[in-house]
Design a protein around this nucleic acid. Structure first.
Lengths: 113, 113
DNA sequence: TTGATATTTCAACTGTCATTGAAATATTAC
DNA sequence: GTAATATTTCAATGACAGTTGAAATATCAA
């Protein structure tokens, strides 16, 4: 992942509503959910939501497909994974222990094998 | 870590120059480095650098101390760790495997024990 | 004290961000 | 076809971001 991609993803997530949208889509699972449901869940106006979804899409954090009159948005988990990898690899000096004090209990991430 | 803190850190890192500054400070280690060195390394004007360092400081990503006429800035590794934890815990549905496909080889982060 | 060095503060400017309201488009149901 | 639903597009707005140049502040050296 290039620096510019990381900056784009960081910027896309660096906003209240968009972070909410992305989290909601992650919860929704690979099937995703229609824009209308997102708007209703987060109490966002539809045009405002479109604006934020565009940002997320430009950063490749979500995908869209049409289903009838609904637009179904889904989170791209790989994008989040790539960001986390980038951060730990490039912003922890390649020495992740710098960013993860030994005293701290293992986090759920550490379960990944 | 609260959502607002995460958004603040994401926003602080979501900018070319600031991401560079932070990465440089991470490389510099716990001792940190004087603003002048950062400005020289990254070819930034001193006042522009101050602007960006302020942002990083407001997000608690860096610390400052004075040493003579120099201001020594240092990365707060814990902040990066907290962000990564937040992202994996809140944006991977608490199921990190969603964000880390099994097919992918272990990353350096996984070395942490 | 005077001058040089290191950094910050201030003001001005351009551009982008996020929100709002109104109108347009696409799809389905009748 | 017409009406209803789902979403996007467009224009306007106020606020904030990032850059620049000039001036101010703080520290050290002579």
């Amino acid at each position: 992942m290039k620096k510019q991609d990381a900056v784009a993803i960081l910027a896309a997530l660096a906003q209240d509503n968009r972070l909410d949208v992305f989290r909601l889509l992650v919860e929704a699972g690979p099937e995703g959910m229609p824009a209308g449901h997102i708007a209703h869940s987060l109490k966002l106006q539809p045009n405002a939501l479109t604006f934020h979804l565009d940002r997320l899409r430009q950063a490749d954090l979500v995908t869209v497909r049409r289903d009838g009159r609904s637009m179904i948005y889904a989170a791209r988990y790989e994008a989040m994974d790539a960001l986390v990898s980038y951060l730990t690899d490039h912003c922890c000096q390649g020495r992740p222990e710098l960013c993860a004090p030994a005293a701290k209990p293992a986090r759920s991430r550490d379960k990944v094998r």
